[in-house]
């Protein structure tokens, strides 16, 4: 499939795949009668690219929403950076280093690319109302400092030319990229990407795959990736979780998962 030619710049990736960054234990999530997730346990290790795959409605997005505290699972626990949490909440997740992008683009439509990416710095900026009002002095210095960092990310993702454009006017592929930039601006330790390549053409997909790899390698960011394109998943990820109807049906390296009969039946066999 498409991305076999993809080069990994650093050659063999250097990583410490033994340190567990996030672990889910027996997580179940229900919406009324719907079991979105049933008794899911898996972990994400520091520095890896962890793919979550499965047919539509399998519970992948719900999984990410549990991880960053938007949904509260009825059962189960989450260990995040060694601390056990019964409940996560979005503020806690964001401020302790979980960033994400969304399946349906959730950019701030009325703002420019630059402001969207700057908004990723919201939690890192400290100056309060008084200094914001006065502007001259600390608030301005802080803004410039963060602007510098944001410009690096903008350069990195090659979106300099659309810096001033209101994001609503951008084509779909670029919007996805701005969303990645916004998430990166949070400098997350764990980056959750919900179908970052959905609806893209081959070239855009290759760009996005390259960015994901570079983020992982250059910044050492751990990535949880939901993606439907099996070729991309097999190429990019270190380990894969497979969900089907809210249940986990496989977990392991691409080579291992590819051979599991349950996966072939539930997903690969049907979709391809």
């Amino acid at each position: 499939m498409g991305l076999m030619t993809l080069e990994r710049p650093g050659g063999k990736r250097r990583r410490h795949l033994d340190e567990v960054l996030l672990a889910l234990e027996g997580v179940s999530l229900r919406f009324g009668g719907v079991n979105a997730l049933s008794d899911i346990s898996f972990d994400i290790r520091k520095g890896e690219i962890r793919a979550i795959i499965g047919p539509n409605g399998a519970g992948k997005s719900s999984m990410l929403n549990v991880i960053n505290g938007f949904y509260q699972p009825q059962e189960g626990t989450i260990r995040w950076k060694g601390r056990e949490r019964r409940r996560m909440n979005p503020y806690l997740a964001a401020s302790t280093g979980i960033g994400r992008t969304f399946q349906n683009i959730a950019l701030f439509k009325g703002m420019s690319t630059l402001d969207n990416v700057m908004s990723g710095r919201a939690l890192k900026m400290r100056r309060g109302l008084f200094w914001q009002l006065v502007w001259i002095g600390p608030a301005r210095r802080e803004e410039i400092e963060h602007r510098r960092r944001v410009e690096e990310i903008i350069d990195f993702l090659e979106i300099e030319h659309i810096r001033r454009t209101p994001v609503g006017k951008l084509p779909y592929g670029l919007q996805k990229r701005v969303e990645l930039a916004r998430a990166l601006a949070m400098e997350p330790e764990l980056l959750l990407l919900d179908e970052p390549m959905a609806g893209m053409n081959l070239e855009e997909k290759e760009d996005m795959a390259r960015f994901i790899l570079e983020v992982n390698e250059q910044f050492g960011t751990t990535i949880a990736l939901i993606e439907h394109d099996i070729g991309v998943v097999m190429d990019l990820s270190d380990r894969i979780v497979v969900l089907d109807y809210g249940r986990m049906i496989a977990d392991g390296t691409p080579q291992k998962v590819r051979r599991e009969q349950a996966v072939i039946d539930a997903y690969l066999g049907v979709a391809h």
């Binding site: 938007f70 979005p90 503020y91 401020s95 009002l133």
Partner: peptide
């Protein structure tokens, strides 16, 4: 001054997409 800095942006974040704002840690 207010609208071009952090606070102004956090208002616009809430205006444009409150769920995304919340998931980015805006209270």
């Amino acid at each position: 001054n207010l609208v071009r800095g952090r606070i102004g942006r956090s208002w616009m974040m809430v205006r444009d997409m409150d769920i995304a704002a919340e998931l980015m840690g805006i209270r």
